[in-house]
């Protein structure tokens, strides 16, 4: 499922989007609750994530947003992006 520009993604769309952007390599069946940080979303990838989120979804993630709780899983990250958009 493709994420749409400037529209809050659901967790599955977010997984595809993370792959498309080359931010982290996730299997097609990566679970919505899967651990993104363990899957390779390291500190450098997180910076690229911030840039890409700003570009695609039009929201700025701040240093305070970048906690393990917020980035932990596609579900949590999708929720973070959605909350910033509303």
């Amino acid at each position: 499922m493709r994420a749409t520009k400037n529209k809050a993604p659901n967790p599955t769309e977010l997984i595809d989007w993370l792959n498309d952007e080359g931010l982290v390599e996730l299997d097609w069946d990566f679970p919505e609750e899967g651990d993104l940080i363990a899957a390779g979303l390291d500190s450098m990838a997180v910076m690229q994530l911030v840039v890409a989120v700003e570009d695609f979804f039009g929201v700025e993630l701040t240093p305070d947003n970048l906690t393990r709780t917020n980035l932990e899983s596609p579900r949590k990250l999708a929720a973070l992006i959605a909350s910033k958009m509303s």
Binding site: D42, S43, M44, V46, M47, V50, V51, L61, T62, P63, D64, N65, L66, T67, R68, L71
Partner: peptide, 11 residues
């Protein structure tokens, strides 16, 4: 936690 926060600061 520090690494993630620093990433945010650099951005």
């Amino acid at each position: 936690a520090a690494r993630l926060r620093i990433s945010g600061r650099l951005c």
